Simulated assay, not measured.
Amino acid sequence: MGADDAPIDRFLEMLSAQAGAARNTIAAYRSDLMLASEVLGGALATADAGALARLGDGWASLSRATVARKAAALRRFYAFLAEEGLRPDDPGKALPKPGTRRALPKTLTHADIDRLFAVTAERVGREATLPADLRNAALLELLYGSGLRASELVSLPRNAIHPDRPFLILAGKGGKERLVPISDRARAAVAVWRGHVAVDRAHLFPSGKGHISRVRLFQIIRALGAEAGIPPDRISPHVLRHAFATHLLEGGADLRALQSMLGHADIATTEIYTHVDRARLVALVNERHPLVDVTKPRP
């Protein structure tokens, strides 16, 4: 047993008991700490600022996100050691702070969306319509028309959406409830599809003894995208959720309302997730700001 094993175990026990960290989080912390310990010859817990600076230099070839994650794990570890009196100082400041830039998420154009719905409409309009085509039409309408997460969509109960109720009360991340609007088109598509779902099935999109998986949903959307001429790297259930948000915001939706619909705890997430074309924002200010008339030259 190495010298670092005991302090690392103690730190991870704290994360689990006090911070309520998930099992995967604990495993990730353990991996990062043990790898760093190996590089430092088993002297991670006693490393000084110079050793940590050299450790950080060894991460030069890694991505910014990976460096940020490793550094964050080690900083939290050293803060714990200092708080517990297991060492007199906290050398965590010597670790790199690359920061992470959130990449703008992919989206689809209005023309892409039109082609997607044209594909499903053509399939549903055939003389011998397949039940799978009705299901896929309902999935597409709900993804783009309501911005549901993939996990939320595939697990919907059979009777979650009512023909005469234009909204859905959904328990999202963290068990928080939110109101999700359901368009007339989506409700109509769901009503048609539900007629093909046995009344004793628990889910709206059943498969086997449960519901279709997120992987299967991903495959369905990719296949529809391929028919519509959309490259596979540009489309997914999450991209459709983003397109829902982006197109609503472009159409003048209120950002706070959009935050509520998407189930984001922090509006900063919504601002990044629903990136609006900067040129459109500039034009909006130039056209709608109350000082525009004041600044215009008088004739």
Rank of each mutant, 00 (worst) to 15 (best):
G2D: 13
G2P: 14
D4V: 02
D4L: 04
P7Q: 07
F11L: 14
A17W: 00
Q18M: 05
A19D: 12
A19N: 08
A21Y: 13
A22R: 11
R23I: 12
N24L: 14
T25E: 08
T25M: 09
A27K: 02
A28Q: 03
Y29V: 06
S31C: 14
S31R: 15
L33E: 02
L33R: 02
M34R: 11
S37A: 11
V39I: 09
G41H: 00
A45D: 10
T46V: 05
T46R: 05
A51Y: 06
D57W: 00
G58N: 09
W59F: 12
S61L: 10
L62H: 04
S63D: 06
A65E: 01
T66Q: 02
A68Q: 09
L74M: 13
Y78C: 01
A82G: 06
A82S: 11
E83S: 11
G85H: 04
G85L: 10
P88V: 09
D90Q: 01
L95I: 08
L95Q: 06
P98Q: 03
R101Q: 00
R101G: 04
L104D: 15
K106I: 07
K106P: 15
L108T: 07
L108V: 09
D112M: 09
D114W: 00
A118M: 07
T120D: 02
V124D: 06
R126L: 01
R126C: 08
A128M: 11
T129M: 14
T129E: 14
P131A: 08
L134G: 10
A138S: 14
Y144K: 13
R149T: 10
A150C: 12
L153S: 00
L153D: 01
S155L: 05
R158K: 04
H162I: 10
H162G: 10
P163R: 02
D164W: 11
R165V: 12
F167W: 11
L168A: 11
I169H: 14
L170K: 11
A171R: 01
G172Q: 04
E177D: 15
L179R: 04
S183R: 08
S183V: 06
D184F: 09
R187S: 04
A188K: 00
R194F: 12
P206T: 06
P206S: 09
K209E: 03
H211L: 03
S213Q: 08
V215G: 13
F218H: 14
I220C: 10
I220N: 07
I221H: 05
I221Y: 00
G225R: 05
D233C: 12
L240E: 04
H242L: 10
G252F: 07
L255K: 00
Q259P: 06
Q259W: 01
G263H: 09
H264Q: 06
A265P: 10
A268H: 08
H275F: 13
H275M: 15
A279S: 15
R280C: 09
V285I: 07
R288P: 08
P290R: 04
V294L: 13
